[in-house]
Design a binder for these strands. Structure first.
Lengths: 242, 242
DNA sequence: AAGTGGTCTAGACCACTTC
DNA sequence: AAGTGGTCTAGACCACTTT
């Protein structure tokens, strides 16, 4: 039960005490000095332990006061949206360069004659269509902007390898939408049938839109998400051998 | 530009260097000792800086090797699913205790005569129905299990205040479903119309199901999620004054 | 003034990896 | 053997909060 590592004992004890209500939300846990004395260790080691609990979302330090116990976060979910599914395959329907046109020009805040790359794909599970996916992004030769963001395959002509965008982020909207004719055709359902649809807008670190995608799921399609993302994070990184 | 804190300078410099490709994914950044010498500081301070970057998902240490630069995570999204919306109100349609019945008994892995609490609510935005929500969970007097999990109002008869469950987690399924009659009635649409539906199963820390909920959204309903959850986390905690 | 967390030092020993 | 990260010490000074 007892770990060889002092900090491990501290985190385990405090985690249990918080879990069983010994320290309730908004209460203070013992101070760094108290814990250091209690465990016969240095403040540095105590702080290491407390940092871990802070990252787990259990406590938060307040300068000059102490460490407060936090209430559990219940409404944050981790959604795993893979561009290219691990299981199943994908089939390209179209890769093209087109002028933006009115609707997309609005999304990208550019002119209607801006050239966009369009990629349309069919995602398959067990040989049957699972989702119809399309993406648009500005065609800028040599600028690799969103290749990695959307985890495209490699287009050596368009993208360089060295620069990997960081700070890019995506906003996702999940809603129902009536299937356009080409989508309905793929799923073998009636045009106008209501499908699960996920729209994504990719933003640069300066918050300007640099990519847009939409994905329609087959009538049987499901998206899953899990809560306790900090916990699942911790477990995942342990599995990766962090 | 220069910070008063050594660790801050290190994180800022490395973050920039990783961002501009000086250190590419799968490459090693300079070792702790190298950085300590470079910045004329102690290893402890360097480690503090590197821990921060690790938490941001930029690097990962490998014992005996060094710190590797990670590729950006693009397929993890943070979905904010609030049980009770901040804006708008909610109206209780039904609070009851019922026997589980066949379908729910299966979900909870219990007998069909197990008593369940059922809560049905209508979520309103601007006075118009936005979502129809129902939840089921075992009725156990004095056990507060999922009150907080689902952020119910307080039922002092059922729940105690002291014990706050930790380690509980929720699995969410987002799909389209045909509206049952009572739901369709609420939205003023035809029964059988396809709606956005979110099902949630709440699990105990021992991974047994302890709650189930379903929410139908009005035809205009949208769920949103954002990527770079680690970054948004960081920003959020800064805003909270962490 | 006393207690709290925030930053920082200059060492130490250990475990893992590579040569 | 040499370099790497992982754990740990016994101090120090500073900034914030409360009495």
């Amino acid at each position: 039960m007892e770990s060889n590592y002092v900090y491990r004992n501290i985190t385990d004890d405090l985690r249990a005490a918080i879990s069983d209500g010994t320290y309730a939300p908004d209460e203070l846990i013992p101070s760094e000095n108290t814990l250091a004395a209690q465990y016969g260790t240095s403040r540095v080691t105590v702080r290491k332990a407390l940092h871990i609990l802070e990252n787990e979302g259990l406590i938060r330090p307040k300068h000059g006061k102490g460490y407060f116990v936090l209430s559990p976060e219940y409404n944050r979910f981790l959604l795993d949206f893979v561009d290219k599914p691990a299981s199943g395959s994908s089939k390209y329907l179209e890769i093209n360069v087109i002028p933006a046109g009115e609707a997309l020009a609005k999304r990208f805040l550019t002119r209607e004659d801006t050239m966009l790359v369009v990629i349309r794909r069919l995602l398959l599970e067990d040989e049957t269509p699972a989702a119809y996916d399309e993406k648009f992004f500005p065609y800028v030769r040599g600028e690799p902007l969103i290749e990695r963001e959307l985890e495209y395959e490699h287009f050596p002509d368009v993208f360089t390898d060295k620069y990997i965008p960081r700070g890019i982020w995506t906003k996702m909207e999940i809603e129902t939408e009536k299937a356009p004719q080409n989508v309905a055709l793929v799923f073998g359902c009636a045009p106008g049938e209501t499908l699960l649809c996920v729209s994504r807008t990719v933003f640069s670190s300066e918050n300007s839109p640099i990519g847009f995608g939409r994905r329609w799921y087959s009538p049987a399609g499901v998206l899953t998400a899990t809560s306790n993302y900090s916990q699942s994070e911790r477990k995942a990184s342990e599995q990766r051998g962090g």
